[in-house]
């Protein structure tokens, strides 16, 4: 059990590292959000699973289980709201982008 939880925490921190490198390197807001949200959310879920395997099913492990769906809904909906807000704010897509279907739609 100790070994499994240690391996899960290592995988989680590796994903977090990849997400943060993407946050530094990619060119514009939308691509940064792509990299960072996915990698960091999955990495933190993996760390919480490691905590569950370490403690077993007692009061600490149950709290780790409750945290996983909350983190999933919270992170994805926050990313969606940020993308829409940034588009309505008027930030253009980057230089490399090839297609924009959202440009001439009546936004609500």
């Amino acid at each position: 059990m100790e070994i499994i939880s240690f391996i899960l925490i290592c995988i989680g921190i590796l994903f977090n590292l990849l997400g943060c490198i993407g946050l530094i390197r990619l060119p514009d807001v939308y691509n940064r959000l792509q990299s960072a949200t996915k990698c960091v959310t999955l990495g933190t879920c993996s760390i919480l699973l490691g905590v569950l395997f370490h403690f077993g099913f007692n009061e600490a492990g149950i709290k780790a289980i409750i945290a996983i769906p909350l983190l999933f809904f919270g992170a994805t909906v926050a990313a969606h709201a940020l993308v829409k807000g940034a588009y309505l704010f008027g930030i253009k897509l980057g230089d490399k982008s090839v297609k924009d279907d959202y440009k001439d739609v009546e936004k609500s």
């Binding site: 994903f15 490198i21 990619l26 060119p27 990698c39 897509l93 982008s97 297609k99 959202y102």
Partner: peptide, 23 residues
């Protein structure tokens, strides 16, 4: 699979991205 895909694009020196909004 998504995470390895994004990791490949981030770590590649030339960054093979071609972003856009589709319907």
């Amino acid at each position: 699979k998504a995470n390895f895909d994004v990791a490949y694009r981030v770590l590649h020196p030339a960054m093979p991205i071609k972003p856009g909004i589709v319907k």
